[in-house]
Design a binder for these strands. Sequence first.
DNA 1: TCAAAAGTGTTGCAGCTACACCCATGT
DNA 2: ACATGGGTGTAGCTGCAACACTTTTGA
Lengths: 250, 250
Amino acid sequence: MTEIKPFNSTEYMNHISLDCVIFGFNNNELKVLLLHLKYSKENTLPGGFLKYDETLEQAAQRIVKERTGLDNLFLKQFKVFSDPERSRSNKAVMDGIIAGTIPDPSFFENRFITVGFYALVDFLKVKPTPDFYSDHCDWVSLNTELSMLLDHKQIIQEAIVTLRLQLNQQPIGLKLLPEKFTMPELQKLYETILGRDLDRRNFQRKMLNYNILDKLQERKTGGAHKSPYLYSFNVERYQEALKDGLSGIW
Amino acid sequence: MTEIKPFNSTEYMNHISLDCVIFGFNNNELKVLLLHLKYSKENTLPGGFLKYDETLEQAAQRIVKERTGLDNLFLKQFKVFSDPERSRSNKAVMDGIIAGTIPDPSFFENRFITVGFYALVDFLKVKPTPDFYSDHCDWVSLNTELSMLLDHKQIIQEAIVTLRLQLNQQPIGLKLLPEKFTMPELQKLYETILGRDLDRRNFQRKMLNYNILDKLQERKTGGAHKSPYLYSFNVERYQEALKDGLSGIW
DNA sequence: TCAAAAGTGTTGCAGCTACACCCATGT
DNA sequence: ACATGGGTGTAGCTGCAACACTTTTGA
C-alpha cells in the first residue's frame, strides 16, 4: 500500500517537444532535412511544441508541413527522449539560439521531453523552408559529419535503427521513392538503410517475388550505359503484403 | 519564415503519465498485471507520473517495482498516447476513482499524455501489490473479457502487437519464462503471442537451430504422460543472436 | 493397457546464395 | 570499340512444411 501524497500541478508538469527526422532519398543517398541556426551556427532537427488541443501526430504533421510544404505525410513516432539533462545541460547553447529573438528566453531553461518522429517524403516534392531561428533549411546526406544541437545526432541515429527494423513492416520504399523508379535505385535505398551491399540479381528476384511492383514499359534514359526499366509500387498489393510483413518468419 | 509568437509557459506544459503493461506467463497463458479500483470497480494498468528529475525509464522501473517488488526489469517504451480527449472525456470516471481520496481532485481534469511501456517478468517472482486507489492487484489472462479504465484496453492491444513484431528482436522468451522450462511451454508462449498454432516438431527444430538453448539433463516430472526435457536459455548466445534478429531476412 | 503427450526422422519443395553470361548505351 | 552498368539464367544448398513413427508416462 503506497502512502498518499498531495499532487502539485506544476510539479508534475513537463514541456513536451517533438523532433522530426525527415528522410528523403536523392542522388542515391539517404538525406535528412535540417535547419541551420542563425546564432549558434549549429544544425537542428525540425521541431516544435505540442499544443494543448492536438495529438502528437497532428503536431508532427504541422511541424513537417511548415518545413516541407507538404500535407498528410507518412509519419511515425519512434522514441521518447526524456533524460532530464538533455536540454538543461545545454542552456548556453539554447541562449545562443534564442538570443534576442523571443520575449521570454527563460522558457528554454525548463526540462524538455521530446518525442522523436520520422517522416518519409518524396525528395523532389519538398520545398525546404527555414523557420525564424534558422538562416537556411537543407537536405544533408547521412554520410556527412555534422555538428548537431543537443542530442539531435542521437535522435537521428535512433531513427535510422528504427527504419532498419521496420523495413519489412512499413512502406518505406513506397514513401521515399518517386512514382517511377529503377530497380538499382530501390536497391541502393535498401543498401543505405541496411548499411551493407546486396547482390544485384538476388535483390531483383526477391523484390519481384514479393509481387508488389509493377514493371512499366518505359525505361529511364539519359544516363550512360544500358537504360534500366522503370517500376512503380502496386499500392494495394504492397499494403496487403505488409500486413504480415515481407517474408515474415513465423 | 514563420511569425514569432511569445511563449507562455503553462500553455505549453502537459502532464505526462506512464502506463505499464506487465506481462507474465503462467499456466500456459499470457497474463497482464492489473489493478482493480476501489471506487469505480474498473481495472487499470499500473501507472504513475513522471517526476521532474527522472527519465521515463526510471519512472517505469519505479512504478513496476511498487506493484511487483522487483528491480531492474526488462522494460521498453512502445508508444505515446496523446489524444486530447483520452482523459478529459472521462472526467466522470476519474471522479469515481479519486472520490475523497486525494486533496486536489481537480488535478485529474487536466489533459494527460501517457507513455506506454511493456514489461516482461518471471511470473513466479512477482508479489502483486495494490496501491492506494485499488483494493487488489492481480494477474489477468488475456483471454478474459475486461472492463478497463479510459483507453487502457487499447494500450494493452498495442503492447501485444509490439510484442509480436519484436519477437525476433527482443529476448521475449528469456524474460517471460523461468530459468528452466520445457519446449512445449516455450512453444505455447510463442503461439499465444503470435495468435496461432505452430507445428510441434518444426518449432522444436527451428528453436534448436538458433543455438540459443541449453538442453538440460533433467526432465519435468509430475505431469501426466511422457516427461519433457527441461531447457534454459544460453544468455550470451541469445543476446548475440538477437543483434541481427533471429532469422533476419536481409 | 491405452490415451495422450513428447522425442525423433524423412521427404519434397521453395527460396536463397553464388555465381556466368549477354545486352544496351554514351564516351 | 569498349567500359560500364543493367537484364536474365542456372546449379546447389539450406531450410522449411508436412507428414509418420516410436517412446514414455499416469490413470
